[in-house]
Amino acid sequence: MNSSLALSSTTFIYALASIFYIGSFAFKKENLAKIGFIVLVIGFLDNTLGIILRWIESYQMGYGHAPFANMYESLVFFSWTVAILYIFVELKYKEHIIGVFATPLVFLAIAYASLSPDISSKISPLIPALKSNWLIAHVITCFLGYAGFAVAFGFSIMYFVKPKNSDSTSIFAKLPSLDLIDEITYQMVVFGFLFLTIGIITGAVWANSAWGTYWSWDPKETWSLITWIVYAVFMHLRMMRGWQGKNLAWVSIIGFMAVMFTYFGVNFLLSGLHSYG
């Protein structure tokens, strides 16, 4: 098996997991969500295999770098990080139904990588300035941060659709309590903020090694800082001002929009040293 086959099958498996979760949500059948979780874990393992195989293929082609060098590889890794973080959340809280808000993000990331005509899956060599072990540390920490914010975004959306009336007959009534949704959102933001902070620091060290400066106000650097500030405001409002509920959920949603612009908008709309090829 090669990496392309593994990652193509991963896309299908993640789609299947999403269908099971959505079906569980729509038809109020918890067993479907349990099946969806098993399928999601299988997809995660296949995703892991695909990343490992692609790394091996890079060495076989003489490039010898981790599979984080272009948009395709970054999306594959993003889906992996969101999947593993969500798996941890479901195992911890035993709330199967929440997968309906997380698994589509996992699927959409890898589906966009696999199906978009504008994204090449070709393994390419790194430019000389990027040939550094800092690549692994920087990308892994940044995308773990993005994954935390993605899961927090899913829970923030959940907060708005969960009925306040516990006796509601809405399909959304089966969602976890508002207090639990709020708490998990906060935990995911703290997780994401920690890793984004480490990612920015490792990126600065790497930039100094590659370009001779720790910070150059490149568009990606600038938007990473904006994202960091938004989530710093989130944490300040939660810890120092005691904000909870919808107001804080809005900040989480705004923060994830900043994440998406940092990841996609900068790459497609702005030019800079960090643009993926």
Rank of each mutant, 00 (worst) to 15 (best):
A129T: 10
A69K: 08
E90A: 13
A83D: 00
V230E: 03
I198S: 02
M71P: 07
A137C: 06
I136Q: 06
T197V: 03
I19G: 09
I226D: 10
T48P: 10
W211A: 03
L180I: 13
S252I: 06
V106K: 00
Y72C: 00
I42P: 02
F12V: 15
V151A: 07
S168R: 01
G255I: 03
C142Q: 13
T81A: 13
F20M: 07
V41P: 09
I127M: 13
G255Y: 02
Y186K: 14
G50D: 06
I19C: 10
Q60N: 15
A6Y: 05
F234Q: 12
T11N: 08
A147S: 06
F268W: 12
M239W: 14
I56A: 14
R241Y: 15
T185E: 13
D179P: 13
I198F: 07
Q60D: 14
A111K: 01
Q244F: 12
T81M: 09
G242I: 00
A207P: 08
A150V: 04
S8W: 10
F77I: 10
Y63P: 08
S156L: 05
S74F: 13
P104H: 02
K220L: 07
Y21F: 09
Y263D: 03
Y14R: 01
F191Q: 00
I35S: 12
V233P: 14
F193Q: 13
Y112W: 15
T262W: 05
K94Y: 07
T262N: 05
Y186A: 12
F261K: 08
Y263K: 07
G277E: 15
L16G: 01
N247D: 13
T48S: 15
Y263R: 08
G23Y: 03
T141Y: 08
N2W: 05
W134H: 07
I22L: 08
Y276M: 07
P104G: 03
L45S: 04
M158Q: 03
V89L: 10
A152H: 08
I56S: 13
T48G: 14
Y21W: 09
G192L: 06
W55M: 11
L178F: 13
T141L: 11
V82Y: 06
L7V: 03
F78A: 03
L5W: 11
A6E: 04
V233F: 15
F172D: 15
G148V: 01
A210L: 00
A6I: 04
F20D: 10
S8M: 14
G154D: 00
K220Q: 04
N133T: 12
N208S: 05
Y112H: 12
P104Q: 05
S271H: 11
M240L: 15
W206L: 03
V76D: 04
T222G: 11
P117T: 01
N70G: 09
I87N: 03
F191R: 08
K164Y: 12
I110N: 02
F25P: 04
K162R: 01
G148I: 01
L7M: 03
I226Q: 06
F234N: 02
I201F: 00
L45M: 07
V41L: 14
P176A: 02
I52A: 07
F101P: 09
Y263F: 10
S168M: 06
Y276R: 10
P176R: 06
V190Q: 13
